[in-house]
């Protein structure tokens, strides 16, 4: 998954000069400490168990409408969360549950929102695709493919305007990468050197259409080339690779070099949404990703191999996060629906 060399023009600083050498390849993977491995393990497992529970509740009819699960892609958001500082912003598409859990939003509130209950993070009025948190600097959950890209660029605009040193992490998928507004954003982000990391979560399929069938060029990390935005491909199934690449991109942005693109090569195990039978890919393909590249299993294997955790200790973590997911499900099911009076609130201030 080596990135191609980019011709960055922005480089005067330390990170920039370092970039010329490093840019040929994905930033080197640094080994995690025991604490980092354990944190990554728990956070990814929590997202997975939460999503499995959400899928189950959907099956029971508790969750309605659209529900886009993040299972398989956990390393991307967890690795990025581990590299961010307080105040750095996140904004993403409708496949957003993992991002909210990773940035510390209350799982009960997320699940209750999925169920359309009053204790949901948007009081039940947003749904799966629309939750926000000022406190955690999470700017949504957006349902129109690609629309979050200019918005995320706007978050970076605010950072530069206020000179607050923060970085916007703007996530979008391989499907959104062909939207026109993405390139309008790239142009302005580089023109004004805005501190934004464009995170392309390439899970290989935009709904049912593979990248090869939708994109004239498939190395999406190079989509910023004509704007002078450097980018690399990253093994998005390896949480350490994600963190290392994000550390690098964060430094690049904070030093005032403008935007940076990280193409996370990842995979979603489930269908696009709940009603997707996923006939556009083979079972073998899915099975191979699960058995050879699973982001959680990779960490688990390292923890056991290095004897940083025993089977029992890992089982205890699993039990704990299962408890969180089950608790969220219980909360969501027992919570009341929003009061009818909420129909007409929060429309205008």
């Amino acid at each position: 998954m080596a990135g191609t060399e980019t011709k960055s023009t922005g480089g005067r600083s330390k990170a920039a000069s370092k970039a010329r050498g490093a840019m040929k390849n994905t930033p080197a993977i640094a080994d995690f400490t025991k604490e980092e491995e354990l944190k990554a393990y728990r956070e990814m497992l929590l997202i997975r168990r939460f999503e499995e529970k959400a899928g189950q509740l959907y099956g029971m009819g508790v969750i309605g409408g659209f529900c886009h699960l993040y299972i398989g892609q956990e390393a991307v958001v967890v690795g990025m969360e581990m590299a961010k500082q307080d105040g750095d912003q996140m904004i993403t598409s409708y496949r957003d549950h993992g991002h909210m859990i990773a940035c510390g939003m209350d799982p009960n509130g997320v699940m209750a929102e999925l169920a359309g209950r009053q204790g949901g993070l948007s009081k039940g009025k947003g749904g799966s695709m629309h939750m926000f948190s000022k406190e955690k600097q999470f700017y949504g959950g957006h349902g129109i493919v690609g629309a979050q890209v200019p918005l995320g660029t706007g978050l970076a605009f605010t950072n530069k305007y206020k000179e607050n040193g923060k970085v916007s992490m703007t996530f979008f998928g391989d499907g959104a990468v062909n939207q026109g507004q993405v390139y309008e954003s790239f142009n302005m982000a580089k023109l004004w050197n805005l501190p934004v990391i464009y995170v392309i979560e390439n899970n290989k399929y935009g709904m049912g259409t593979s990248v090869e069938r939708a994109s004239s060029t498939t190395d999406l990390s190079q989509r910023g080339q004509s704007f002078g935005i450097p980018g690399v491909q990253v093994d998005g199934m390896d949480v350490r690779a994600v963190k290392a690449a994000t550390d690098y991109a964060m430094e690049w942005c904070r030093e005032g070099n403008g935007p940076y693109i990280l193409e996370m090569i990842t995979y979603r195990y489930r269908g696009h949404s709940m009603s997707d039978p996923a006939k556009y890919r083979s079972k073998d393909e899915v099975q191979k990703m699960k058995s050879e590249h699973d982001p959680i299993e990779q960490v688990r294997a390292r923890l056991l191999e290095k004897e940083w955790a025993t089977e029992d200790e890992l089982k205890a973590i699993d039990k704990e996060v299962r408890g969180v997911a089950a608790g969220a499900a219980d909360f969501a099911q027992s919570d009341a629906e929003p009061d009818p009076s909420e129909l007409y609130t929060d429309i205008i201030l």
Binding site: Q89, P150, L151, L155, F157, T158, Q181, Y183, S185, M188
Partner: peptide
Amino acid sequence: EKRVIDTPITEHGFTGLAVGAAMSGL
């Protein structure tokens, strides 16, 4: 020029950018 800004001719992009700026405090 920090506060009076010429944009490229990209309405979709700069409108979204401005909405993002508004959501984050400007």
